[in-house]
Simulated scan of single mutants.
Amino acid sequence: MKEIAETLAAWRRDGVRFALATVVATWKSAPRQPGAAMAVAETGEVVGSVSGGCVEGALYEVAIEVLTSGRPRLAHYGVSDDDAFGVGLTCGGMLDVLVVPVDDQAYPEFAEVVTAVLGGEPVAVATVTGGVPEIGGHLVVTGTGVTGTLGHERRDAAVAELARGMLASGRTGVVHTGLEGRRREDDLSVFVQSFTPPPRMLVFGAIDFAAAVTRIGKFLGYHVILCDARPVFATRKRFPEADDVVVDWPHRFLPKAEVDERTVICVLTHDPKFDVPLLKLAVRTPARYIGVMGSRRTHEDRTARLRAEGVTEAELARLSSPIGLDLCARTPEETAVAIAAEIIALTWGGTGVRLSTTTTAIHR
């Protein structure tokens, strides 16, 4: 929903009712993952996508029906359905889409949700998708409290606890509990969607490759920070797409930056006076990815210097160096694609090999 949040906020400010369709479950090669959203306003305007074009036409009709009736509906699309080919889901996947009406009466908590999303504040939305006749009830969990209800006090408490755990790890998916909140039962199905601030990408080295990396980092949804000690190079004019441009020595800036398990670090300076003191700190952070630019000779020299600084072999193993996947990249833009591909593969467990040579699931 993040991609369409600004439009949805504008609709609510203008008093426009709409139906919000969210993918809550997928199987096999579904084109979009849980959390993908599409909205249909009472004016007929549409924003977002749940399948990349496969089922949007059919889902539009469901959304109009939900707006008319005021009642949520869970729609299922898949190759086993008689109308699957008719709606265009020919990729072999299946998906469940929950469609709910959004207005002050049906979804009063929505204003709180969209405000948090646009403000970069963590928020989780738990929505009943099965187990009771009345699906669509909402529970909104933030760092300061819980609003809404799923219809039962103990149920609310149990789901709120589960949602807090999923929000802390940034996970989205379906959880199960008993109708009265008993953990060992699974009568109730609840879709929990976590909205967390964007992960950070720290790019060190104000070079032409860094300009391309900041652009692709923004495209992938990162909050991108460019850092270099040289003020003549680290300028907003040279890096207009970076969220922040910092003039500082990298090893002095890193301890002041927020680095967590979702952070990726790209060290592009390939200069030992910058790299060694920075990497000595970086390998001891919880960052998900630490990529370092340079030739194989540069890498060997750099690792020798780091060993001399007391960096262990286990810490050295955290470095992706030379940085990126083997795409035979030449230009800064091609190199940025190779770096982004490595980050994506590491994040989701991809192999980096051509899909045409594999038989595993595409989305796993």
Score class of each variant (00 low, 15 high):
64 I>K: 11
66 V>R: 10
325 L>Q: 07
38 M>Q: 01
329 A>H: 07
2 K>Q: 12
13 R>V: 04
216 I>H: 03
152 H>S: 06
299 H>V: 07
134 E>C: 06
142 T>G: 03
320 S>T: 11
12 R>H: 12
304 A>F: 12
275 D>C: 12
106 A>N: 09
105 Q>F: 12
167 L>P: 10
224 V>I: 08
228 D>W: 01
178 G>S: 01
288 R>G: 00
113 V>W: 00
43 T>K: 15
308 A>H: 12
26 T>M: 13
165 G>K: 10
199 P>C: 05
219 F>I: 09
332 P>H: 09
289 Y>V: 10
324 G>R: 00
150 L>H: 02
196 T>P: 11
202 L>E: 13
86 G>R: 12
139 L>S: 09
32 R>L: 10
188 L>I: 02
284 R>K: 13
192 V>I: 07
133 P>N: 02
54 C>Y: 05
88 G>T: 09
54 C>S: 11
306 L>D: 03
38 M>L: 05
70 G>A: 08
245 V>T: 15
159 V>R: 07
276 V>P: 10
289 Y>A: 03
192 V>H: 04
179 L>T: 01
128 V>S: 02
53 G>M: 14
135 I>R: 05
164 R>P: 00
134 E>K: 10
20 L>E: 01
343 I>H: 03
192 V>G: 08
39 A>L: 08
302 R>L: 13
260 D>N: 09
317 A>E: 14
330 R>Y: 15
14 D>Y: 06
160 A>H: 08
272 P>A: 08
66 V>G: 06
184 R>D: 15
79 V>H: 13
58 A>L: 07
103 D>I: 05
103 D>S: 01
83 D>T: 13
104 D>A: 04
79 V>M: 13
17 R>P: 14
98 L>N: 04
9 A>V: 15
77 Y>M: 07
146 V>M: 06
74 L>T: 02
4 I>G: 04
310 G>V: 06
190 V>T: 13
334 E>Y: 01
133 P>S: 08
130 G>R: 02
9 A>P: 11
273 K>D: 13
359 T>N: 06
185 E>F: 09
188 L>P: 00
16 V>A: 03
201 M>D: 00
307 R>Q: 01
354 R>W: 14
344 I>H: 02
158 A>Y: 09
59 L>S: 14
234 A>G: 12
283 V>H: 04
183 R>W: 08
222 Y>L: 08
135 I>Q: 02
18 F>R: 02
313 E>C: 12
342 E>G: 07
161 E>L: 10
342 E>K: 11
271 D>G: 02
314 A>S: 15
363 H>Q: 12
185 E>R: 02
90 T>Q: 14
205 G>R: 12
256 K>I: 11
298 T>S: 11
118 L>Y: 06
92 G>C: 09
154 R>N: 15
207 I>W: 03
357 T>C: 10
222 Y>W: 13
120 G>Y: 01
267 V>F: 09
7 T>M: 14
95 L>V: 09
288 R>K: 01
214 T>R: 11
162 L>Q: 08
289 Y>G: 04
300 E>S: 13
218 K>F: 04
213 V>M: 02
248 D>K: 02
107 Y>A: 11
307 R>H: 01
119 G>S: 07
331 T>L: 03
237 K>W: 09
319 L>G: 05
358 T>L: 11
94 M>Q: 03
321 S>H: 00
